[in-house]
Simulated assay, not measured.
Amino acid sequence: MAKVISINISDEKGMSKDPIQEGIFVESFGLEGDAHGGDWHRQVSILAQESIDKIAARGIKDLFPGRFAENITTEGIILHELPVGMKLLIGETLQEVTQIGKKCHSRCGIYHTVGDCVMPKEGIFTKVIKGGRIKIGDLIKILG
């Protein structure tokens, strides 16, 4: 069963995010108050705890939800295998997968702090089709 285990926010792009209990996700923007939000195709970044665990298994310490600058940390779903265009019901929101992974042109602050970054390989990005509230523990339903 796929679910949200953390919602994370920051006021600066490319940096670790701080966990919050719930977030308001705004249609055509992303997480209210987050630096990553805006009128573009990567409004929300999502990463699976299973992907974080792969990096932790290499002996890298101090990994926690939000460390890779993801807005939503999930459990129970292989995110990077979802096709672009897939729709996800997360809490009260409807989101569409717009990108799988990303190019890392230069080593970001996360890479230098953590020693590796899984977001370029296994993170996904979505745009918010229908806004609403997302809380820790909310289920994720794949539509398609």
Rank of each mutant, 00 (worst) to 15 (best):
H80A: 13
F64K: 15
G85N: 14
K141S: 13
T93M: 04
S10V: 03
D62A: 14
G30K: 06
K141Y: 10
K135E: 10
M119T: 04
I5D: 01
A35P: 06
G59T: 06
K87G: 02
D18T: 15
I24H: 00
V4T: 02
S51A: 13
H41K: 15
G137R: 09
G14T: 02
K102M: 10
L82H: 07
I24G: 00
P65S: 04
H105D: 09
D116C: 03
A56S: 12
G38I: 12
V44A: 07
H80T: 13
I24P: 00
D116T: 11
D53P: 06
I20P: 05
Q99T: 11
K135V: 12
K130H: 08
V44R: 07
I24D: 00
V118A: 09
D116S: 11
G123R: 01
R58T: 12
P65T: 04
R67N: 12
V44K: 08
A2W: 03
V128I: 15
K17V: 05
A56Y: 03
F125C: 04
A48E: 08
I52V: 15
I136F: 08
S10Q: 02
G85C: 12
R42Q: 14
A2L: 08
G33L: 07
R42G: 09
E22V: 09
I142V: 15
I140R: 06
K135Q: 11
T74S: 11
I129H: 08
Q43G: 11
E32N: 12
I140N: 06
V4L: 01
V26W: 04
I110L: 02
E27M: 14
I9G: 02
A35R: 08
E70I: 07
L79A: 09
V44T: 10
D11W: 00
K17H: 02
I124S: 01
G30M: 08
R133Q: 00
K127A: 03
Q21W: 10
S16F: 13
I9F: 00
Q21V: 14
M15V: 15
C117A: 01
P120M: 04
E32G: 06
Q21G: 14
V128F: 01
L63F: 06
G14C: 01
W40V: 09
G66Q: 04
I134V: 14
I129Q: 09
K141A: 12
V97S: 06
M86P: 05
D11M: 02
L47G: 06
E70W: 05
E75R: 15
T93V: 08
G91Y: 01
L89I: 13
G85K: 14
L82F: 05
G30E: 03
E70G: 10
V26A: 07
I110A: 03
G30I: 08
G76Q: 11
I77E: 07
C104V: 10
Q95Y: 04
P65F: 04
S28Q: 12
L139I: 12
G91R: 05
G123Y: 04
H112D: 09
K102G: 05
I124P: 02
N71H: 08
D138W: 07
I100S: 03
T126L: 06
D53M: 10
V4Y: 03
T113G: 06
I46F: 02
G37A: 15
G38R: 11
D11A: 07
A48D: 06
V118K: 01
V44F: 07
V97A: 08
K127F: 03
